[in-house]
Design a protein around this nucleic acid. Structure first.
Length: 416
RNA sequence: GUGGUCAUAGCUCAAUAGGUAGAGCACCAGGUUGUGAUCCUGGCGGUUGGGGGUUCAAGUCCCCUUGGCCACCCCA
């Protein structure tokens, strides 16, 4: 066992996997960029107040934050999510041109018990839009996430939407829920949840709570006409775009700041409890809570790790390896390889080489393992005749050739 | 945080009722003078996650601890 290993819930992403990470991020950046979103990069560390504004009924804030006092005695926390940071950034810089459309990618930290698809340091990609109340924006935001999954090649993704209504609707509904559950048969844990946040009882997976949850009042009965209209516009927009969705009246989300439209993407292939690939919603009021002007906002965050798990389940990744163009085998000391790889790279070819002056057989094995289509071989004969061997590595790629040393680059350019 | 389960070479796993650790892959070196991918031979490699206990003897039993996984919880 190694003397040191990663902390619980944290891990190294090794070269074998990072290609997928880069692809995922590249796809996301492309989609967000094509819709007029700019990237925002916010600090990993924020004043803890930025996050406590999110709400005191969510475990993310009350139990799971990596908070501590820095050397200046500031109470800070590693960010447990991105939305609050983005809203803080908006309140701090007050961009004049609205809407402010941004996307981001990065790590978040939550001190939870790790499981598959649930890490203490986990990555998200997401977007936030501040300053527009339009229900059509809700449609755009949801559609972008949908497009992203499609662009990755995922097909088993289910979109679930709901509306929490206007703040007053939501408040009235919460009271109705409280009344209902207080007179219902709930488990002990269910009662504890009820005391903190009645909405979350709807999320219970305990059998003992199932009957009470099934009999609970539904949010749809509490919508004001504005909320109902907003939600109807969102749904008709999704239909117009041909995006399949399911309305789930019992969908509630973990963070307390959501109002009106909320949505979640579930992976059809993920049978574990961690099947939420991503989610988001409207959070009008969050910027104000962070000291900014009253500003409507909406966005989503998608879990990179879970999305990658879904990609793996659906087999959307082909061969990730990106071999170099050329592998240089030098059995005359290595100086030739130094010069040749430098020339090749300067000419635009990617090139790797063998080291430690190993035997030709050993270096050829390295060349083979590198999957480079071509090997350049330099031995005594080549040095003596001022030439190199250019050897195609594939079985059916023909014979090797001896090329004049000075013609190497031009020869490769002609044949590639 | 609660409950359950697992932990053996770099990786995937073996090891009869406790008797003192093995295979495949990978890696390295050879297979008659420069050339890989197949094949053959050999080699490297583990105080069996860590600590303590029971026993003549523990990878195999007990306790503690660390970590993975699963469920609850929470959420992406």
């Amino acid at each position: 066992m190694p003397a040191f290993q990663t902390s619980p819930g944290m891990r190294d992403i090794l070269p074998a996997d990072t290609a997928r990470w880069r692809r995922l991020n590249a796809v996301f950046a492309e989609i967000a960029g094509s819709a007029g979103y700019g990237q925002v990069i916010t600090p990993l560390l924020e004043d803890i107040g930025v996050f406590t504004r999110i709400g005191d009924a969510t475990d993310v804030v009350t139990k799971e934050m990596y908070d501590f006092r820095d050397k200046g005695d500031r109470h800070v926390s590693l960010r447990p999510e991105m939305t609050a940071s983005v809203c803080r950034s908006f309140a701090q810089h007050r961009p004049a041109a609205l809407p402010w459309k941004v996307w981001y990618t990065g790590s978040n930290f939550r001190y939870e018990k790790p499981q598959r698809g649930r890490f203490r340091q986990f990555d998200q990609v997401g977007i936030e839009v501040l300053g527009v109340d339009d229900a059509h924006l809700d449609v755009e935001v949801i559609a972008l996430a949908w497009e992203f999954y499609a662009a990755l090649g995922l097909t088993e993704v289910n979109l679930i939407v709901n509306s929490l209504g206007e703040p007053e609707d939501r408040a009235a509904y919460v009271e109705a829920l409280r009344t209902h559950f207080e007179s219902s048969d709930l488990t002990e844990q269910g009662r504890a949840t009820l005391a903190k946040n009645p909405l979350r009882v709807l999320d219970s997976k305990r059998e003992g709570d199932a009957a009470a949850v099934a009999a609970a009042p539904t949010i749809a009965d509490f919508y004001s006409s504005e909320a109902a209209q907003h939600f109807a516009t969102v749904q008709s927009g999704l239909q117009r775009l041909g995006i399949p969705y399911t309305v789930e009246p019992k969908l509630v989300r973990g963070l307390d700041y959501y109002r009106r439209t909320i949505f979640e993407f579930q992976g059809g292939t993920l049978d574990s409890a961690q099947n939420a690939l991503g989610g988001g919603g409207r959070y009008d009021g969050l910027v104000e809570a962070l000291g900014g002007p009253a500003t409507p906002g909406i966005g989503f965050a998608l879990g990179v790790d879970r999305t990658l798990l879904a990609c793996e389940d659906e087999g959307v990744f082909g061969d990730d390896t990106a071999p170099v163009d050329v592998f240089v085998v030098d059995v005359v000391g290595g100086q030739e390889a130094v010069a040749i790889t430098a020339e090749l790279r300067a000419a635009g070819f990617s090139a790797d080489r063998g080291y430690d002056n190993r035997s030709m057989k050993a270096q050829m094995k390295l060349a083979n393992r590198s999957a480079a289509p071509l090997a350049i071989i330099v031995g005594e004969e080549e040095v003596a005749s001022d030439s190199v061997i250019v050897r195609p590595m594939a079985r059916d790629a023909g014979d090797q050739q001896r090329i004049s040393r000075s013609d190497l680059i031009s020869h490769l350019k002609e044949t590639s």
